[in-house]
Structure formats: structure tokens, C-alpha cells
């Protein structure tokens, strides 16, 4: 299972696949205010990204992987929310 769901935190595995989008969404629905730890994530399927963008859970760690970190930070880390209108 690429996401580990524990209490109120979903921790991503190295690879988040398209199938994980549904389980992540279900977890976030069942645990309002749950946080997401993307630290270990190195590949992220668009469907999972879409869930993150739509639900906007609190991200406690961005992926350590450089590409994801670089391009997800503006979209997922709200403090410097820019680049969209």
C-alpha cells in the first residue's frame, strides 16, 4: 500500500499510483483535517496530485525528490500561493 494511513496522517510511499488516488481521498473524507506527509514520495500520479490540489490537506512534508519538490511547492505549500489567478 503506497500510502500508510495512521491516525490523522497519510504518509506517502516512494511511488504513488493512480489507484492510490481513491484510497487517499477516502482517507481524507473519513478524517477531516488529516495531514499528508509526502516526504518519501518520488513519483506522484496526476490523479493523486489532483486529490491533493482539490482537498488541500495540510502538507507536513513536501517530497524530498527534487522535481516534485520544485514544482509542487507553489501549488501545495499555501504560504507563498502565487502563480495562479
Amino acid at each position: 500500500m503506497p500510502f500508510t494511513f495512521a491516525k490523522s496522517t497519510a504518509t506517502a510511499d516512494e511511488s504513488c499510483t493512480v489507484e492510490d488516488a481513491l484510497s487517499l481521498l477516502e482517507f481524507l473524507l473519513a478524517n477531516p483535517g488529516a495531514k499528508v506527509d509526502l516526504g518519501p514520495c518520488a513519483t506522484l500520479h496526476t490523479a493523486v496530485l489532483q486529490v491533493l490540489l482539490a482537498v488541500k490537506p495540510k502538507i507536513i512534508a513536501l517530497p524530498r525528490e527534487a522535481f516534485l519538490r520544485r514544482w509542487l511547492s507553489p501549488a501545495l505549500a499555501p504560504p507563498v500561493k502565487r502563480g495562479s489567478k
Binding site: A21, L28, W71
Partner: peptide, 20 residues
């Protein structure tokens, strides 16, 4: 690279994770 929704996000409950 900017990723945005083409339409306003629905509520979490109405979200279809497999409709891009």
C-alpha cells in the same frame, strides 16, 4: 509549471478522483 483546475473544485464529497 502551473497546475490548476479548469473549473472550481467541487466539495470533497463530490470529487471524482478519476475525472481529470
Amino acid at each position: 509549471l502551473v497546475v490548476e483546475p479548469t473549473e472550481p473544485w467541487p466539495s470533497m464529497e463530490a470529487l471524482d478522483p478519476y475525472r481529470c
